[in-house]
């Protein structure tokens, strides 16, 4: 039971991490291999702001906002030539360019903040949930993730912006013919995904300290969840995140961290080979 709760709590954060990645793919047909690096950068910026004496809440919010701004800047600069390409060329150059970006960010963070950690541990006794004691940080992280995901799904369903996003995912030309500007929507979604990645740094910081080297692992986790949920499928990312979170928790409990990671990778490979459109049957 405790394992299950832990898994769901972690899984919600995985969903949060993957949902931005999958939306970017759905909208622009590009993959962002620097997604986790946005989270790592947020962690470092947040930690530094706290170090110099800003209030924790303000630091964290600013860091997330900076991550969103960075993502937006990347979309406006590096991704522009990528969007000019089409089909496989576009995917390929997005992979190479964002891989370069990932290494660029990694290098900066590891060079200038090798030991900085974002630690938002919540003090106090554990919550008891259905007889299972849960650390406060974990519960808060799960709640934050769940609320943000809920709001996101709602906004996508009912707002004009959300409808426009979903329309581009389904048919970009059709959306253009309705007066929707795909490149502007892409930019807003890129910024959103930067903010969501940053938020994952925060929720991770609530459960365990997170530092400069976390970017690569987070990118890979995001990729796994995105692939298992189906590239470009928001609902798929939500379901796959929670599912893999539970798998992660159960496996770490039984076979250890290293083999768990291997298992998740193998699941991703299996899904690509057996069901490339993802485990969820739905169009978006």
């Amino acid at each position: 039971m405790a394992v299950l709760f832990d898994g769901v709590a972690f899984g919600l954060q995985l969903s949060l991490l993957a949902v931005g990645l999958t939306m970017i793919y759905g909208l622009g047909g590009v993959l962002n291999l620097a997604h986790g690096q946005f989270a790592a950068a947020t962690a470092i910026i947040g930690a530094r702001l706290i170090e110099v004496g800003f209030p924790v809440a303000l630091s964290v919010i600013s860091a997330v906002a900076i991550s969103a701004g960075l993502a937006m800047a990347v979309d406006a600069t590096l991704m522009r030539p990528v969007y000019r390409l089409h089909g496989e060329d576009r995917v390929l150059s997005s992979l190479l360019v964002t891989l370069g970006l990932a290494f660029a960010i990694d290098g900066l963070l590891i060079r200038f903040a090798p030991f900085t950690l974002l630690n938002l541990a919540v003090p106090g006794p554990a919550f008891v949930l259905l007889g299972v004691p849960m650390r406060r940080g974990v519960v808060v992280a799960a709640l934050v993730a769940a609320v943000v995901l809920g709001v996101l799904v709602l906004v996508l369903r009912v707002s004009r912006w959300g409808r426009a996003v979903r329309s581009i995912i389904q048919d970009e030309e059709g959306a253009t013919l309705c007066g929707i500007d795909p490149s502007r929507m892409r930019r807003s979604v890129f910024a959103l995904s930067g903010a969501l990645a940053g938020l994952v740094a925060v929720t991770q910081g609530l459960t365990a300290p997170i530092g400069a080297t976390s970017g690569r692992d987070l990118t890979v986790l995001a990729l796994i969840v995105t692939v298992v949920g189906g590239l470009g499928r928001v609902s798929g990312a939500l379901v796959a995140g929670v599912l893999l979170g539970v798998v992660h928790a159960v496996a770490s409990h039984t076979i250890g961290a290293v083999l768990t990671f291997v298992l998740l990778l193998l699941v991703a490979i299996a899904v690509i080979l057996l069901r490339p459109s993802g485990i969820v049957r739905s169009a978006v």
Binding site: L78, L96, V97, L99, G100, L101, A102, F103, A104, I105, D106, G107, L108, I110, R111
Partner: peptide
């Protein structure tokens, strides 16, 4: 150097 390589790739 990682940063340089990344920038170079881009």
């Amino acid at each position: 150097r990682l940063t340089v390589y990344g920038a170079l790739l881009i």
